[in-house]
């Protein structure tokens, strides 16, 4: 008696499963249909380029597909070795680290301080106006900002230098001498991102339980003490997550900002990896070398992100990955 039943049941579950699958697909096939286009997009524009990474290990040939190109010397590592023997690349690497590090030191605390200020503003209407104005630079392109900066900081005819000269000082070559350029570059970065980056901190501050402030009031805490002992500890998690992201980006950074602010006089400090890849790769047609450089940048970037995340988790924070 037992055996036939089991066989029957097995057959039943089989057809049941098919039936259930049919029913499921009948109900949900549109989900897969919707996803088809985005998935195709990711395959074509994100994953297929990854197969081109092998060019970094191969001798580039314009007529062959990357799969068929011959392996480069030194078991394929030729171009990585060449990159690290190229002074221009080493300079770009150094500048990328330096500019991103200065950005982190100057740019990271700025929005926290501004958010604390905005939060303490007693007039709501004025707070809104300040926010709107402070968000504005985020919406300007670096081309526009470099246009603004060239007018504002022009050696003799710019507003800043006119004022300096009227006050009896010597004009400052903001964009034309390496050290000054680096300072201007960093300050413009702070100017552009400070307001926008307050949004997340302000949201975190809004979520703080008001009872904490009331308790602090009863204990006789002043404004600064409340900021130090209530507000800052409450948004610590947010600060750490954003710090991880910033650390993970220490070898990243955009192209537009160094490219548009840079000029031949300051090339020694303004050339970074993305601009190096552009001038040596797309303009100089050294595809294998610049693909290798790009791969190096991506891989090191991922390691920095994972490393920062690991450290944050070790310190008992939530992390991001």
């Amino acid at each position: 008696m037992r055996r036939p039943t089991t066989a029957l049941q097995a057959r039943d579950t089989g057809s049941d499963r098919r039936k259930r699958f049919k029913l499921y697909m009948h109900k949900y096939w549109t989900l897969y249909a919707l996803l088809a286009l985005p998935i195709t997009y990711f395959i074509i524009f994100k994953y297929i380029p990854m197969t081109y990474i092998q060019i970094a290990f191969k001798r580039y040939s314009i007529i062959q597909s990357p799969w068929k190109m011959p392996l480069a010397n030194n078991h394929g590592w030729q171009y990585f070795i060449q990159a690290f023997r190229t002074p221009d690349f080493l300079r770009a690497l150094r500048n990328t680290f330096m500019l991103n590090f200065l950005d982190l030191v100057m740019g990271f605390p700025a929005p926290i301080i501004l958010a604390l200020l905005l939060n303490e503003l007693p007039f709501k209407g004025f707070k809104r106006v300040t926010q709107t104005v402070a968000y504005m630079p985020h919406f300007l392109s670096w081309i526009i900002i470099s246009g603004l900066a060239r007018q504002l900081f022009a050696p003799t005819s710019g507003l800043v230098n006119i004022v300096i000269q009227r006050l009896g000082g010597n004009p400052i070559p903001f964009l034309n001498k390496p050290v000054h350029w680096v300072a201007t570059y960093v300050l413009l970065g702070v100017w552009q991102s400070m307001g926008w980056n307050t949004i997340i901190y302000l949201a975190a501050i809004t979520a703080i339980n008001p009872e904490l402030y009331e308790a602090a009031d009863i204990d006789g805490a002043g404004r600064l003490q409340k900021i130090w002992y209530v507000t800052l500890p409450s948004i610590k998690g947010t600060i750490i997550v954003l710090l991880i992201l910033a650390l993970g980006n220490i070898l990243g950074g955009g192209f537009d900002r160094p490219y548009t602010l840079g000029n031949p006089l300051v090339r020694n400090v303004s050339e970074v990896i993305p601009t190096f890849v552009y001038s040596w790769g797309i303009k100089g047609l050294q595809f294998s070398l610049t693909t290798a450089v790009g791969l190096f940048q991506s891989v090191v970037g991922v390691f920095f992100l994972l490393g920062a995340d690991f450290l944050a988790k070790r310190a008992g924070e939530r992390g991001i990955v």
């Binding site: 994100k46 994953y47 380029p49 060019i55 890849v277 595809f287 991506s298």
Partner: peptide, 28 residues
């Protein structure tokens, strides 16, 4: 109810942390 949701999510998020770079995109 979407089957393989985790895999699809990972497949997409991965591209946020790792990208091929400028030159592969240009050549593509």
């Amino acid at each position: 109810q979407l089957k393989g949701r985790r895999i699809i999510n990972t497949f997409i998020i991965f591209t946020m942390y790792f990208n091929a770079g400028t030159i592969p995109m240009y050549l593509l």
